[in-house]
């Protein structure tokens, strides 16, 4: 490990966010967890991230790494109201990523990670995920990363296939059984394994990644365009 990092996990109230927090803390890093509503194991509760970030930074930081956690929830586009909600969530997330990147600018070697839910497994598993949010943020991250690299911030995403903890074991078993002819049958990946992978990236200094979207999953092809 290069050095101890101060990490903020936004929307940490998810199996992956909690696993990452545990993994980072055990490795000796300083971790601050955030959620929109009060939950066990969460340090900060708040909804107005762009306006509160600096306050959190002076209380718990200065942060060198900010991770935007996975968000659960079926994102459907059946009605104009659904569209409004997706649009609102996207605008909010963009504003939050912008504020984070601004804060890490000119702090040497900042990293911002955005965790996106891969959704093509939905054909086999009732996972609550749709491609609007993830595809939109892929466009955003690849664009903004090119703008902020010169300020010493590396913005990247993980495109994460469903995690074991997101669904009942029986559903995983059915899905696996139904994929009889699949060459390398997918395995449900545990949150802690993905957390270990991300922890390793977070620990690296001068990581050779900016504007990248890394697919994370075992045995299932990434959602293609």
């Amino acid at each position: 490990m290069d050095k101890k990092q101060r990490v903020l996990i936004v929307d940490a109230d998810h199996s992956l966010g909690l696993a990452l927090s545990k993994e980072l803390a055990e490795a000796g890093h300083s971790v601050t967890t955030h959620a929109r509503k009060s939950e066990p194991g969460i340090d900060i509760v708040g909804n107005d991230i762009p306006n509160e970030l600096l306050k959190w930074d002076s209380a718990y930081g200065p942060f060198e790494r900010i991770v935007f956690g996975l968000q659960d929830g079926a994102e459907v586009a059946e009605t104009p109201e659904d569209i409004g909600k997706i649009q609102h969530d996207l605008a909010r997330t963009l504003g939050e990523i912008k504020a984070s990147v601004q804060m890490l600018s000119r702090r040497d070697d900042g990293q911002v990670w955005v965790l996106l839910q891969e959704d093509s497994m939905q054909y086999y598993l009732p996972v609550a995920a749709q491609p609007m949010r993830s595809r939109a943020l892929v466009g955003a991250i690849k664009s903004l990363a090119k703008e902020v690299f010169c300020f010493g911030v590396k913005l990247n995403a993980l495109h994460v296939q469903p995690l074991a903890e997101q669904l009942d074991a029986a559903l995983w078993k059915d899905a696996r059984t139904n994929l009889k002819a699949f060459a390398i049958k997918f395995r449900p990946q545990k949150s802690i394994d993905v957390a270990k992978f991300l922890r390793a990236l977070i620990e690296l200094k001068g990581i050779p990644l900016a504007g990248m979207v890394l697919p994370v999953g075992i045995g299932y092809p990434e959602n293609n365009v």
């Binding site: 459907v76 586009a77 997706i86 996207l90 963009l94 749709q130 491609p131 609007m132 949010r133 993830s134 595809r135 939109a136 943020l137 892929v138 466009g139 955003a140 690849k142 664009s143 903004l144 703008e147 959602n223 365009v225």
Partner: peptide
């Protein structure tokens, strides 16, 4: 950034 976000969202909407 916002243009790419909106067009990425449309790519996702197309899939959905």
């Amino acid at each position: 950034v916002s243009y790419a976000t909106s067009k990425g969202a449309l790519v996702g909407f197309t899939q959905w």
